[in-house]
């Protein structure tokens, strides 16, 4: 789905101090319908603070935020009406069964979620009749996922959603999120599993020390980070023309191969390689891991 112009989540200058201690400062970003925004940052960078501010759990020190056009500071909870939220530290009512817990939440939302509870639980292989206290950490996390999705929200705020899930269930979860995205749900996804964010998210926001340090589309971001391109030729070629190409920061020659480290557009170095009679080109895209480390280390 193509993101619409009207953002589902919009925060401007969002600032939170816990007494004198900084939580987050001057954070601004938008998430549009159908967009999955990866929300990254080292531990303590303020990701959870932003998510809890969005859910009205924390009081804003400065700035403002809108969810589906409703002020997140509005005590009526309108902003949360069509939001599914999975907190980073999940605690459930241990004395209830899974089904009783989910029905309680559905009743409090005054929404009939019977069908969706059954469907999502089946896909996640979650036993509805089991007492929550008897569940493993992974199964409790599944309960968290179901309660976030069961009321067909238009916005999803997911804080470390796959913590404790096995790889098979992680795959199911990723499918569920993609399906939500296809039906126009805006997703704010915080995770330490970079590969997961890389697979799901089209955009990323990176926080560090409570401040937003980077926000971009993932593909554009990759262009902004150093990456390596390997060219193979039929015979030995001179490295000098490559060193003078725009964006090339380093050239390594090894027999009939040349490996260039490039920042920004690759057209110049590719043109040079074509002129030299390149046979094969292999690009080593930076992983989100590398981007994350590069950005946070620089910060």
């Amino acid at each position: 789905m193509v993101p619409s112009d009207q953002p589902s989540i919009s925060v401007r200058g969002l600032t939170k101090f816990y007494g004198k201690r900084l939580g987050v400062e001057d954070v601004s970003f938008d998430v549009h319908p159908g967009q999955i925004m990866g929300f990254l940052g080292p531990n303590g960078s303020g990701k959870t603070t932003v998510m809890r501010l969005l859910m009205g759990l924390l009081k804003i020190t400065r700035g403002d935020g809108l969810v589906l056009g409703h002020d997140i500071a509005d005590p009526s909870g309108l902003a949360r009406r069509e939001v599914g939220y999975l907190p980073g530290t999940l605690a459930l009512y241990e004395n209830l069964t899974v089904e009783a817990y989910l029905r309680l939440l559905a009743d409090l939302r005054t929404t009939d979620c019977t069908t969706s509870i059954g469907e999502i639980s089946e896909r996640l292989q979650l036993p509805l009749s089991a007492p929550i206290k008897s569940l493993s950490k992974g199964n409790k996390q599944k309960v968290g996922v179901v309660q976030a999705l069961m009321h067909h929200p238009k916005v999803l705020v997911l804080d470390e959603p796959t913590a404790g899930l096995d790889p098979i269930v992680q795959r199911v979860f990723e499918d569920l999120v993609r399906e939500q995205c296809e039906r126009g749900v805006a997703v704010l996804l915080s995770s330490h599993v970079m590969s997961e964010v890389e697979q799901l998210a089209s955009d990323v926001v990176i926080l560090d020390h409570g401040r937003l340090v980077l926000q971009d589309r993932l593909d554009r971001l990759k262009n902004r980070i150093e990456r390596r391109i390997r060219f193979d030729f039929a015979e030995h070629v001179d490295r000098l023309p490559f060193e003078s190409c725009a964006g090339v920061t380093k050239v390594e020659a090894d027999g009939r191969s040349i490996v260039c480290t490039v920042v920004g557009p690759e057209s110049s170095v590719l043109g040079c390689a074509v002129k030299a009679g390149v046979i094969t080109v292999q690009t080593f895209e930076p992983s989100l891991d590398e981007i994350f480390l590069a950005v946070t280390a620089r910060n």
Partner: peptide, 12 residues
């Protein structure tokens, strides 16, 4: 720790 989900519901 159960307050996070409870108070994130659309309730005053």
């Amino acid at each position: 720790g159960t307050a996070d989900i409870l108070f994130a519901l659309p309730l005053r």
